[in-house]
Design a binder for these strands. Structure first.
Lengths: 199, 199, 199, 199
DNA sequence: TATGAATGAGGATTCATTCAT
DNA sequence: TATGAATGAATCCTCATTCAT
């Protein structure tokens, strides 16, 4: 039989990331994905039920990966909660460090439905968020973080800010370095804007 | 009795806000907008060149309004820069306080093109952002804000965070109060997460 | 405004009859119908929700018409039940007398679902059948028809036979005259095949 | 253990009957047939040229069988022509007696092309019909049947009626017993509807 | 023979936009 | 201005068939 040569499933996913990145979900054409992946249109449907399924898979894969990373970090007994929070930010940034296409694909239109829908593919995302909240909660218990902050709100604020910065960077990677952004985000989250040198 | 002039244009815009909010840009049907506005499809095109122009107008009107408000605040000599920053956050929140539809319409898919394109209608948005940056810059000069933060990055971070919180709130207004969100954002921006009571 | 010129709705229906007749339901292309009707593809969808709706309309119109005719016949007090049954056969034949396309469109594949589904558009058909059964029942009560026949079965047998003859004729109208067919059907239904001259 | 040769071809055919029956020709998927037959898709094409060929084979097999049965009946010298006609009806009914799937498969959409095309696979069907006509002709010569009936027309009428009844029964076997139908068909064909008890 | 991954032509339907009135 | 019937390009997805193994 005609055997799977190479990894068409992966080729299609990679192609889809590029096309979603460049055009957004609604303007991404299946044909374009197929051509970029070097397969026939029909082959796309051999591996994925439909357009949405491709997008879902991209999202799911990403958050599953991030969740696993965060879990390993959280499991460590040798680092402090503050360091874990730091690592959380790092995990997010590293995931997209050399993948602006992935960033744009995930973030551009279509993903605002995020959290809203109960689709199974969003579970890894929710797991990640829950674990992130737990780390912040730990920090509050340990008196590292301010107990007056609303965790859910702050979590969304940070995530939204990260998302938007990432998207801007993905659209024009040369405009600012991701490490400068990372540094600012960390500083901002932890210390805010006020000048602590002030009286 | 509805007088004829001026109203239709506004009716269409209001209807469009609802429809964009409920369906997102790509799933918003011109016909639905027309019906909701109580006009014929053709009339939509008398007042607006095309679908995008309607969306642009909504965005433009919003940011023009916000920019004007921020300008008045910035012009005041009787309040401090810290208070101006505080007011900046308030302007953003007040704009959507009783308008979840507007929030969803503006933020949902389609508006990620924001900033990317150089369309004239984005000018009020850019003006607002520039003025916001100036206020922060003033704060840095006055030693209120930390001079090490990158203004552009922080500005985008705050805006992204605000945007995401707003969208979540707009999708489920009952889940959390906008004033609680506002309070947390202000606190977070200014003081960050660290517990300043700590030694 | 661009006003309805001519009767596009009717043009489309007539075109659809031809195309369904020639190709059967599944092989009838909407584009072909549109071209034949002299309208744009989109116009088809202005008047009909989808392909199935066009077919339904054809069927519905036909049976509504036939039912009305049969009702008028049944209402008459001046003719006998035997004559009414005769007229019932005539109604069926006359409906297709100069419309082989209509016959083929209705009968070819797709209409075997007939009776099976409860779609509203089948109601006129069911009305016709019910009234037909009533006429036969009357005949039985009046001792004209044999009381041992199962009305439902006989009704379906006659209808199926008519249907098949009609389809064959519609495919090759020249092969046999419809009036010869009509005459045989009437004779067969009433007297069967046995030679009554026989002892 | 299933022996290898001969079985697959038959398995596919049996599976096809079920799938055609349940879905009709156009909605029958080759994949479904393959799965039901327990073979690979490709294997279907080892035994049959294409979808149509499978359908043709079903039809051909059926009519070949029926024709052979009818031939044996016709060859008998010990029964009258009237009894042969009776047996003809029985052959038809018996063929489907415990096989509603076969009935639906054969009759549902797609088989109206029957008689229209000159494909070789229709020959057994035509043979059966010709032999059926001969029996009726014999009956006419023997003065059993009425000489005024048009054999071709009556033959199609009976066949169409049988076909439709069969289809209805196959769709809902519990609604009426096949033997009641058979009995009515025989009576109707031979004696028609008129009450011969009447003066 | 047997397999099933790969193919790609084909078609129903949508909907922003136009334009004759 | 106002209308809404008319347009048709554009696209997702299906599925019979092929063919390399």
């Amino acid at each position: 039989m005609r055997t799977k040569t190479g990894d068409k499933e992966k080729d299609i996913l990679e192609a889809a990331i590029s096309v979603f990145a460049e055009n957004g979900y609604h303007n991404a054409k299946i044909q374009k994905i197929a051509i970029l992946a070097g397969v026939a249109i029909g082959s796309v449907y051999v591996y994925y039920k439909n357009k949405e399924a491709i997008f879902s898979k991209i999202v799911e894969r990403l958050w599953t990966d991030l969740y696993n990373q965060l879990q390993q970090i959280d499991d460590r007994a040798d680092i402090s909660t503050a360091e874990k929070f730091d690592a959380l930010i790092d995990v997010l940034f590293d995931a997209f460090f050399d993948k602006p296409f992935l960033a744009r694909a995930i973030i551009s239109e279509g993903s605002n439905q995020i959290e809203k829908d109960n689709n199974a593919y969003m579970e890894p995302y929710r797991n990640f968020m829950t674990l992130g909240e737990k780390i912040v909660e730990d920090g509050i218990k340990e008196n590292i973080f301010n107990p007056n902050i609303d965790i859910k709100i702050v979590r969304s604020f940070i995530f939204g800010g990260f998302r938007f910065l990432l998207y801007q960077w993905a659209c024009a990677p040369q405009d600012s370095s991701l490490s400068l952004i990372r540094q600012n985000v960390k500083f901002f989250c932890k210390k805010g804007m006020l000048n602590s040198n002030m009286a």
